[in-house]
Simulated scan of single mutants.
Amino acid sequence: MSIAFTRALGVSLPLIAAPMAGGAGTPALVIAAARAGGLGLLAAGYKTPQALAAEIATVAAASVPFGVNLFAPNPVPVDPAAYRRYAGLLAVEAERHGVTLPPTPVEDDDHWHDKLDVLRADPVPLISFTFGIPGRADLAALRATGALLVQTVTGVDEAKAAAEAGLDALAVQAPAAGGHSGTLTPTRPVADTTLPDLVAAIRHAVDLPLIAAGGVANAADAAAAVRAGAAAVAVGTVLLRCDEAGTSAVHRAALADPARSGTVVTHAFTGRPARALRNDFTDRYGELAPYGYPAVHHLTAGLRRAAAATGDAERVHLWAGTGFREATAEPAAAILTRLATLL
C-alpha cells in the first residue's frame, strides 16, 4: 500500500511536509518538499480565500505535486460569561502591547464555502481536513475535482467515522504532535499513545492508506511509523527552523533555546487543545482559559501578533511537538532526506 500510495501522490519519498497554519507553512516550503521527492501541504487555515488562491497559483506554477489542508467546520461555541471573564484577565496583557481585545465573541467558519469554491476553480492533487469531517455534499464536490481526500484523525473511533464518510486516506495524528490537535472532540482529552501504536490500532480497524504524524523527529521515528503500517509520514515541528519556513524570529529562537524545558498541551491561546513550548502564558492561563473555538483564537490573535513583533516569547503561541529539540536551521531538503534514510 505504501508504494501504491506514493505513486498515487506522484512522489518518490513517503514523506509529507505537514500543513502549518499561521505563517510557518509557505509555498516555498511546499515546493522544497516536493523537489526533495516528498509532498508539501499548503495550510489554508486563517488565510483569506484570495490568499489561498494566490498560494495555490504559486505552487502550481512550479509544476510539483502538492496538497491543501482545510479547517473543516467543527465549532466549539464559547460560553459568553466565560469569554468575558477571560477577556478581563487578558486585559493587562493587551494593554502592555497596545492591543484592543474583541469585546464580544467572534464565531466564524474560516471562509469554508469560499475556500471550497477556490479548490473547485483551481483543483489540487490532495485535500486534507482538520478539526471536522466535512459533509457528504462537500466531499462529493471536492472529489469531483479529482483530488485525493484525507481526514485527520486522532483515534480509532474517528478513523471509523472518516472511513464511513468515504474519505480516501487518513492522517493519523498522535498526541506528541505540535500545534493543534485534530481531535473531533476538543473538550475531551486525547488518549496518550505512541504514534506506532496508534497507527497499528487504526490499521487494524480500517482499510485505508495512513499518513502518520506526531512526534516524528528523526529517521528512526519515521521508520517505526512505516513499520506499524503507515503508507507515508508527515512532519512539521522538525521543519519549523528550516530555511523555507515562515516561522517568526521569536518562535525560531525559542525552539533553539536550551532553557525551554518542554512542551504542554494548552487551549489558552485558541480555545482548542494544541501543543506548544511552555511559557508564561501557558503557565498563567492554561487552567483559566475557556474552551471555545474560534472565539478564543480571535480574542488572543492580536495580542499574539503584537507580542511576536516585539520579540515577547512569553505571550506567543510557540507551537512545537515533543521532538522540537531536533528542529534544525538548514534547507528543508536536507531535513527530509535525512528523515528518509531508513525508509
Rank of each mutant, 00 (worst) to 15 (best):
T266G: 09
S261F: 02
A256T: 09
A254S: 12
A274Y: 12
R252N: 07
L277Y: 02
S261R: 15
S261P: 06
A245E: 02
L239P: 05
F281E: 09
T266M: 09
H251K: 06
H251V: 08
A274G: 15
T247P: 03
E244G: 00
T282H: 08
H267W: 14
G271W: 05
F281H: 15
G271N: 04
T263H: 11
C242Q: 05
N279E: 02
V264C: 10
V238K: 00
H267Y: 11
D280N: 13
L240E: 06
L277C: 06
V264K: 09
P258N: 08
G246W: 07
D257V: 01
A256M: 06
T270I: 11
A249N: 03
S248K: 07
R275V: 15
H251E: 06
R252K: 13
F269T: 06
A249Q: 09
A274M: 14
R275F: 10
A249P: 01
P258D: 10
V238L: 05
L277M: 09
N279Y: 09
R272V: 15
V264Q: 10
R252H: 01
D280C: 01
L277H: 06
R241M: 03
A254G: 05
H267C: 11
L239T: 06
H251Y: 07
R260N: 13
T266E: 11
H251S: 04
L255W: 02
R275C: 12
P258F: 05
G271S: 08
N279R: 12
A276L: 08
S248H: 07
A274S: 15
G262T: 10
F269V: 09
A274R: 11
G271C: 03
D257Y: 00
R272K: 14
A256S: 14
D283Y: 01
D243K: 09
A249D: 10
C242T: 15
A256Q: 09
P258S: 04
T282G: 00
T263L: 12
A276F: 06
P273I: 10
C242N: 12
A249Y: 05
A245M: 02
V238P: 03
A276P: 08
A274P: 14
P273C: 12
A274L: 13
A249I: 03
A254T: 04
A274V: 11
G262A: 11
G271T: 05
T282Y: 01
G246S: 11
A253S: 08
E244K: 01
G262L: 13
E244V: 00
R272I: 14
D283W: 00
H251T: 05
L240T: 13
C242A: 15
V264H: 00
P273E: 08
L240Q: 09
R272F: 13
R278I: 15
G262E: 10
T266A: 14
A254R: 02
T247H: 02
R241H: 00
A245P: 04
G246C: 12
D257N: 07
D243H: 14
V238A: 01
R260G: 04
T270A: 15
R278L: 15
V238D: 00
T270L: 10
V238G: 03
R278A: 15
D243Y: 08
